[in-house]
Design a protein around this nucleic acid. Structure first.
Length: 446
RNA sequence: GGCGCGAUGGCGGAGUGGCGACGCAGCGGAUUGCAAAUCCGUGUACACGAGUUCGAUUCUCGUUCGCGCCUCCA
């Protein structure tokens, strides 16, 4: 069995991965706040941790890995959106939850084992806040429940920020009800026109960090193996999750391996609506194969920044074209090639894994190529479906085949002018002809 | 200001104390009625300056440049 090494953010080093219980490997990844379409940057952790999920299942067994990814379905952004549309937060969150699920499936990301929702864990949150108050780690103030940071000795271990630094570097005004400037909110009051739930501290709603602590504990236990997310979540989100969970559980370790993916830029710049380089996954999958998008996200190591561009997608699409030509009609090998497993076992080195797949890109190793690529969520369709896609514009498959037949006849009579005329006509419909030893085939142009 | 990350050929991107990973693009050739696809060939790349060393792109220090986080953000 392959040893897996993972970079652990809290240790700042690559470590041998040893799950607490190899018969139940537990991974949690922070999921989306469902208030709008997910953009391509949101898709990066999904694809990265999907690769890890696949690797863990290969190494530990298909049924021995639990992967949870939450939906944050209560949040001010959702509330604002609901208010704009004059509808409920549930309508908004369920709508975007559905779109998210569909879009990520287009990227060949496997569904997680569980997708818990924040709003379905209010009792657990209230229980955890009670525990934290009882143990002296939290307090009530003006309808809020606040976590008291100085009550925790080693707060800041994950991010490397000491409480003092945080206070010194604070950019935001300190709310008057805080005992300490570093304290953060577990529960905040809701006005009558805002969504809220009853609690011992009045009607209100949870703070952002609390849900993850509660859902992890409920579904996977007090200690889990892997917790993942984007680097921007290290502070404050994950730092505060540690504070909540470890203080509620008397210091018991919350997460054994913390993993964080790097940022994604688009055309070299931070993606933003004002720069016009904002790509939602929903839009991208209309015009580009999901596998090409997926491969584009995996060309860089997950801890490095990755620059996304349509040129990259086109390049990766051509790489997939080459692979698809080789595996046409080929049955995938039974085992995943060791070179690919080894590359991924070294802290998820996807660029090296892709290179290993390229090394298998030859006629003689097409079965291994297919097995390796499918393991990474690629080459999952028939080659003919990949190349032909949906019916091209303004022409039916029957018409295409009739024209190919007519061209073959012309070719037999050495009527190359007619032959080329037919080729050009099909090119105008986005259909490219390829004459091979066994006849003429066609594919859709890029 | 604090903490952290990075700099590899035209582009993307691994890796290594001593043989130019790999892909894309380019160029030359084979093949093809023309194409496409495929195959073969083709490149003195490791930001800069010191140091350690028989030898540094790789280790150490410094410099420059770029980036992220510091209580909305994957």
């Amino acid at each position: 069995m392959a040893d897996i090494y993972l970079y652990n953010t809290i240790a700042r080093a690559k470590q041998l991965f040893e799950p607490l219980d190899p018969s139940n490997v537990r991974m949690y990844v922070c999921g989306p706040t469902v208030y709008d379409y997910a953009h391509i940057g949101n898709a990066r952790p999904v694809v990265v941790f999907d690769v890890l999920f696949r690797l863990l299942k290969l190494v530990y067994g298909e049924e021995r890995v639990t992967y949870s990814r939450n939906f944050t379905d209560i949040d001010d952004k959702i509330m604002n959106r609901a208010a704009e549309e004059g509808t409920s937060i549930r309508t908004i969150s369920r709508r975007y939850e559905k779109v998210y699920t569909e879009d990520m499936a287009m990227l060949n990301a496997l569904p997680p084992s569980r997708t818990p929702r924040a709003t379905e864990h209010l009792p657990e949150m209230i229980k955890m806040m009670r525990t934290l108050i009882d143990k002296g780690h939290a307090y009530e103030a003006e309808g809020h429940v606040m976590f008291h940071v100085p009550s925790m000795d080693n707060y800041g271990r994950l991010s490397g920020h000491s409480r003092d630094e945080l206070v010194a570097g604070a950019r935001v005004e300190v709310a008057p009800y805080k005992k300490d400037p570093a304290d953060f909110v577990l529960w905040k009051p809701s006005s009558d026109d805002q969504p809220g739930w009853g609690s011992p501290w009045g009607r209100g709603r949870p703070g952002w960090h609390l849900e993850c602590s509660c859902m992890i504990e409920k579904h996977m236990g007090e200690t889990i193996d892997i917790h993942g997310g984007g680097q921007d979540l290290i502070f404050p989100h994950h730092e505060n999750e540690i504070a909540q969970s470890e203080c509620a559980n008397d210091g018991k370790q919350f997460v054994r391996y913390w993993m964080h993916n790097g940022y994604l830029t688009v055309d070299g710049e931070k993606m933003s609506k004002s720069l016009g380089n904002f790509h939602t996954v929903h839009d991208l999958v209309q015009d580009h194969p999901g596998e090409a998008l997926r491969l584009s996200l995996l060309t860089a190591h997950y801890r490095q920044p990755v620059d996304f561009s349509l040129a990259t997608v086109a390049e990766q699409k051509r790489r997939l074209d080459r692979w698809y030509r080789l595996v046409d009609g080929v049955q995938a090998a039974e085992t995943v090639p060791a070179s690919v497993v080894e590359a991924l076992s070294d802290d998820l080195n996807t660029p090296k894994a892709i290179a290993a797949i390229d090394a298998l890109a030859a006629k003689e190793t097409a079965a291994e190529l297919k097995a390796a690529a499918q393991f990474m969520g690629l080459l999952t369709q028939d080659s003919s479906a990949w190349f032909r896609g949906d019916t091209p514009d303004g022409i039916t498959v029957d018409e295409i085949e009739a024209l190919i037949e007519a061209r073959s006849t012309a070719k037999r009579h050495k009527d190359f002018a007619e032959s080329d005329r037919i080729r050009d006509r099909l090119i105008n419909h986005g259909v490219i002809l390829e004459d091979g030893p066994s006849g003429t085939t066609w594919r859709k142009a890029d």
